[in-house]
């Protein structure tokens, strides 16, 4: 085939580009993913019973997950456009992990070492371990659907950030069930599970996102 022939095909009956498509699709993926994560949470472990709800700790958990969600979302919007590497912003994703790890360690320092076991493992670290990745599955699928409509050129990084955002959504949903009110618990289990989701995303990215 001659390249001129291809150019003929592409420029004949050219349709204008719809503006704001990327933002709309990303918003849709986040809403569907977030709603699904919340529904899976409700139908499996359910909301934490109202009496024991500590708003302070819920806010703390959400601060961690939503800050990751925010940075990750901005990054995804950039990574899906060729030529915008988002390298500097990617480094910023370490910040919430760092802050929560430091405060978690400080909180431990102020407590009697006898209490450390309870603070670190909480009542059900196993549930946390299972729930966050489980809740992150649908958000991850939704984000991959979004990214496949775009043109990411750094597939590993983009996959990692998709995993991070999905993990953050999963952790957000889990926060509404989580009965453990300890900053050290959040630092370890929330941090590790979101990081795990990002790692899995980085592994899957090059396979799922090729175009």
């Amino acid at each position: 085939m001659k390249t001129d022939q291809l150019i003929d095909i592409l420029s004949t009956n050219l349709e204008p580009v719809k503006r704001g498509q990327i933002a709309k699709t990303l918003a849709l993926a986040l809403i569907v993913g977030g709603a699904a994560a919340f529904c899976v949470m409700l139908s499996t472990v359910g909301l934490r019973s109202g009496l024991t709800f500590s708003l302070h700790f819920l806010a703390l958990k959400l601060l961690f997950t939503l800050s990751l969600l925010g940075i990750g979302t901005v990054l995804l919007a950039r990574l899906t456009r060729p030529g915008q590497s988002g390298k500097k912003l990617s480094t910023l994703t370490y910040l919430p992990f760092l802050v929560i790890a430091i405060t978690g360690a400080v909180a431990l320092g102020f407590e009697n070492p006898m209490m450390w076991g309870r603070m670190l493992l909480g009542m059900n670290w196993v549930t946390c371990l299972l729930c966050i990745p489980l809740f992150a599955v649908v958000p991850f699928v939704a984000l991959i659907w979004f990214l496949r409509k775009g043109a990411p050129t750094d597939l590993r990084r983009t996959g990692a950030i998709a995993g991070l955002v999905a993990g953050a959504l999963g952790a957000t949903a889990y926060a509404f069930h989580c009965p453990d009110d300890s900053i050290s618990f959040i630092a370890i289990w929330y941090g590790a599970m979101v990081a795990l989701c990002a790692f899995v995303g980085a592994l899957l990215g090059p396979r799922l996102l090729r175009w």
């Binding site: 291809l6 150019i7 592409l10 719809k18 456009r81 060729p82 915008q84 775009g150 043109a151």
Partner: peptide
Amino acid sequence: QEALLAVHTRRHTYD
């Protein structure tokens, strides 16, 4: 040709 077609199908990603 592959790149031109990619430019075309992904042109909505140009900001």
